[in-house]
């Protein structure tokens, strides 16, 4: 008998050879068969291919949201063609950072949601708005975290509420939600938020900011992120959703393959030390 406190009662390895999990430990048989691992049943414990920050801001009569197109595998830039802004319904954008496979799963359930709500329930209506999408996603995220099987993402939902006011709200892998006039995920919360809050110091101040101002700060933020976030990319997508106050209609603008402009690298020639050949 094996007297090791943890394996107490099992046949000793010296006499009987390695313990055969197929015989006794029925509950974990499947897993032990697969990889002969001692790990318990495992759900996602870390993201694999990841997308970095999503940044967003309200302005007077609309909302702007941006995310680059990189999919990283650790520190490797594995993909540069990942679209992380998802359009849901006619006036909502969901921006996702974090695990890309989970992103694709979320994309699929949002597709199903849209079909269910707008086609089946409404016969081609147009009622699915940002607060509905956010509430639904936050239920999904919180339920997954409660089953200890999270979707490894931070999500920003941007659009309009039922009173046609700009709507911006966040939800992440823990199911934590909040709203603000400027929201950024990941590195963006450190690098972009200071710039964005400089434009919109208080939540209510977004009404004093026009689209051009918001767009400029978003562009600046994307540049700063490209400079300093090693997992960011030069090419990004951004979407603008605005309420045309004359027609009362909501306009949707989705721009892909935008480049980070006005990059300044003159400082680079002055860098000294490490691998630099300059002295």
């Amino acid at each position: 008998m094996n007297h090791d406190p943890y394996y107490w009662g099992r046949p000793s390895d010296e006499v009987y050879g390695q313990y055969n999990y197929n015989i006794a430990n029925a509950k974990n048989v499947e897993q032990h068969n697969q990889n002969n691992s001692n790990f318990p049943k495992m759900n996602t414990q870390q993201p694999i291919i990841t997308g970095t920050s999503v940044i967003s801001s309200k302005f007077k009569n609309g909302i702007i949201i941006a995310a680059d197109n990189v999919g990283s595998y650790g520190s490797l830039m594995r993909f540069n063609n990942i679209e992380r802004l998802i359009k849901v319904g006619s006036q909502t954008i969901v921006g996702i950072s974090g695990d890309i496979s989970d992103l694709q799963y979320i994309q699929r359930i949002l597709d199903e949601l849209e079909i269910q709500q707008e086609v089946y329930d409404n016969d081609g209506g147009d009622f699915l708005i940002a607060p509905n999408v956010h509430e639904y996603l936050s239920r999904v995220m919180y339920n997954r975290r409660s089953n200890m099987n999270p979707l490894w993402n931070s999500i920003i939902v941007a659009g309009f509420d039922s009173e046609k006011k700009p709507f911006l709200r966040y939800v992440d892998l823990l199911g934590v939600t909040y709203h603000a006039s400027t929201i950024a995920t990941g590195f963006g919360s450190h690098l972009a938020i200071p710039l964005l809050r400089n434009l919109i110091p208080e939540n209510k101040d977004y009404i004093n900011v026009n689209e051009e101002q918001a767009k400029k700060v978003i562009e600046d933020s994307m540049r700063v992120l490209f400079y300093r976030d090693a997992r960011s990319g030069e090419v990004y997508s951004y979407a603008v959703i605005r309420l045309n106050e004359e027609t009362g209609k909501i306009e949707f603008e989705f721009n892909k393959k935008t480049k980070v402009e006005d990059q300044k690298w003159r400082f680079a020639k002055d860098i000294r030390g490490y691998g630099s050949t300059q002295h």
Binding site: Y6, F39, Q45, M148, L174
Partner: peptide
């Protein structure tokens, strides 16, 4: 002995 033989469970922290 436990530390040597049992893989450390690195769990997702739900809080």
């Amino acid at each position: 002995s436990e530390i040597n033989k049992i893989p450390i469970e690195h769990r997702f922290n739900p809080y």
